[in-house]
Nucleic acid binder design. Structure first.
Lengths: 205, 205
DNA sequence: TAAATATACGAGTATCTACTCGTATATTTC
DNA sequence: GAAATATACGAGTAGATACTCGTATATTTA
């Protein structure tokens, strides 16, 4: 039974064009997710948008949920810059100032990345996709909780956690309205309302 | 060409068992929508839950969106009692008291009617269903705006409208968490957070 | 250069879903 | 009681979708 050398062939390194294809598929997935929503986004449509065949798509991803996972991780990476900026606001700033530091960039990011809303604004994704994006969602929750904890140094961590959850849900509720606002003035007004709602909640929570 | 008497046969009156079937189908739809969500809820599953054949279902409803419409109207009717109670709170009560008068019954209603959340908590239903439930959604918006207007007698109606929209989105964001809370204590805590969020927003808006 | 493997294709498959249709029975109307 | 119609059935249809498979080419490794 002792098997000295089972040469389970390790996959040879991915080629440069493979990496490029993956990037192209993730980009296409963002477009299709944004246009049709997570359940109506078909793998064939993603392949078409990427300019490749369905077979090639499955050369790099094992399932639609796997594509969603890659897309969510892509957004997490893109957001890390934003997160750094946010975390850099001084420890002594007011709740309102911190909210301003978060809301503006987040709205800008959502506008620039239309697929982001499709993946993160919904709390009831199909099970397989929800599982796929859960790690990134939890990381975002952690970031928000850390930020909120600065203003609630005396509070129980469980309280801070709950407050972070509520704040995220408020953002989730408002973001679709903001993104799909018919004109910039409406968008700005709704963004201001989001700031008001967050400030109102967090100063009372 | 002049046709003096085109006897377009007017459909004979629906029988009592037909009315009963319709009630049964709507009830079944609520169950299936709650269990699977609006897009995964299949008409065959609704028929099975109602204990009838797919063909019989289409005897009474022309499409899945048509069933969603009937369900949303059913909820609107069920909610009219709640609305009456809410509207009866005195004109002079505080914002907080009014919020309490709304949130408690609304959470209770959502818990007692699991399909309600599936239809009303989502802002991105498939187009045909969204159109089907739009009238009821608008009626609910009107009710909320009327209630809010009591505290904002000086405000422009457009402002009141926008504030009502934001308040509804806050509720929409929180309701899934409240309904799916793992235990009653968590549910009560989240319901309290919803009250806090609404009070915080409305006193600042 | 030759073997090995990554990339690429796209028609095809199994499965699912909204909805139909031919047919049969229950109820109402006259 | 008989014609007309509402109710009921459930196998069947057309269309869609996630994913596969046989095959062919490009690239890398030795």
């Amino acid at each position: 039974m002792t098997d000295p050398a089972v040469p389970i062939r390790t996959r040879r390194k991915r080629q440069a064009r493979g990496e490029e294809r993956i990037r192209e598929i993730v980009r296409a997935a963002a477009v299709v997710f944004a246009e049709r929503g997570p359940e109506a986004a078909t793998t064939n449509a993603i392949a078409a948008e990427a300019g490749i065949s369905p077979g090639s798509l499955y050369q790099f991803f094992s399932s639609k949920a796997d594509i969603a996972r890659a897309l969510s991780e892509h957004y997490a990476a893109e957001l890390s810059g934003v997160r750094q900026t946010i975390m850099d606001v001084g420890q002594g700033t007011s709740i309102e100032a911190s909210i301003d530091a978060v809301v503006g960039p987040l709205v800008a990011f959502s506008l620039a990345h239309p697929g982001f809303k499709a993946l993160f604004a919904r709390s009831d994704l199909p099970a397989d996709m929800r599982d796929a994006v859960a790690p990134v969602q939890q990381a975002m929750h952690q970031t928000v909780a850390t930020l909120i904890a600065r203003f609630m140094t005396e509070r129980d961590p469980a309280d801070v956690d709950r407050i972070a959850t509520v704040a995220i849900q408020i953002v989730r509720g408002m973001m679709p309205l903001i993104i799909e606002a018919p004109d910039p003035a409406t968008r700005d007004a709704l963004t201001a309302e989001l700031r008001t709602a967050l400030a109102g909640y967090l100063t009372r929570a």
